[in-house]
């Protein structure tokens, strides 16, 4: 009896193995790090950390005698004052600019159609850029904290009468405040990231960011201001108190919880938009 056999599939019909999700993410990260080369994004992260320190340094160098009482430990006041300037306005502005710059790398190159036609999923592309953004933000904030302490040390040498050498600063509260600030930044970072990916123009996310920052700062006295993610970096300053000793409340504030919620919501929304968006 004859048996019916189906011809074997042609050699090219073998389905190749798809790279795993982590492999895809690793490849995307490797490519995205390479794309940062010669962009202003890295410089912005460095400048974002250094600028508030430089401003504060100048204030203390030229007018320190008006800010520090004789015999008082200058460090708590120095750190608190600097953090207020940096966290309330400069940090949100830095995040707005950084997200816009990162997304512009792909927008300007009309790169989405190329990236999405490669053997990496849209999720990996999306998460990779988000991780780069988070890393650069954290880098800027850690750089800021490190430079702030270093600049205090330099002030001790240049203006010994201010008492920076005699006084001291505990690193624990500074690290804790860094954590609060990072959490407070996440909400607006998530929103700006999604906006920067969605709109090809740099102007729309920039306008959204500046509008958000102005709204947040204007409504700081509103009882529900914690809901506004752009106000969170200013709201967490309440955790900081620096009279004789620098102390930081370790409890996660309502503004930080809202910030986390905004981040989660924005990231999910952004993924959904990217997943179902038709590439240009």
């Amino acid at each position: 009896m004859k048996t019916l056999t189906t011809p074997p599939p042609p050699h090219w019909a073998t389905l190749p193995a798809a790279p795993g999700a982590l492999t895809q993410l690793r490849r995307c990260l490797a490519a995205d790090y390479g794309k940062l080369y010669r962009t202003p994004a890295l410089w912005l992260a460095l400048a974002g950390g250094a600028l508030p320190v430089l401003l504060n340094f100048c204030i203390f160098y030229f007018k320190g005698e008006y800010l520090v009482k004789p015999g008082q430990n200058p460090w708590p006041h120095y750190v608190t004052m600097s953090w207020q300037t940096a966290s309330a306005f400069l940090l949100p502005l830095f995040v707005v600019l950084l997200t816009g710059l990162l997304a512009a790398i792909e927008h300007q190159a009309v790169g989405w159609k190329h990236v999405h036609a490669l053997p990496v999923g849209r999720g990996a592309v999306y998460v990779s850029k988000l991780l780069i953004l988070l890393q650069l933000t954290l880098l800027a904030q850690m750089l800021y904290a490190g430079l702030l302490l270093a600049a205090g040390g330099v002030l001790g040498w240049l203006r010994p009468e201010l008492g920076f050498r005699a006084g001291s600063i505990a690193l624990g509260p500074v690290g804790l405040m860094l954590g609060h600030t990072f959490l407070a930044t996440l909400g607006l970072l998530g929103i700006q990231y999604v906006a920067a990916l969605w709109w090809r123009s740099f102007v729309v996310p920039l306008a959204l960011g500046i509008g958000g920052i102005v709204t947040g700062l204007t409504l700081l006295r509103w009882e529900h201001v914690d809901v506004i993610p752009y106000a969170a970096p200013a709201r967490v300053l309440h955790a900081l108190s620096g009279k004789a000793v620098l102390t930081v409340d370790p409890a996660v504030s309502l503004a930080e919880w809202y910030s986390l919620a905004w981040f989660g919501g924005a990231v999910l929304l952004g993924y959904a938009l990217l997943r179902f968006r038709q590439s240009e």
């Binding site: 389905l15 190749p16 193995a17 798809a18 790279p19 895809q24 794309k35 080369y37 010669r38 962009t39 790398i105 300007q108 190159a109 009309v110 790169g111 989405w112 159609k113 190329h114 990236v115 036609a117 490669l118 053997p119 990496v120 999923g121």
Partner: peptide
Amino acid sequence: VALLSRVGALIENPSLYGH
């Protein structure tokens, strides 16, 4: 993802990073 590993494409103007 699996199938695109065997495909090379150039769609209209190439997507290139000028910097």
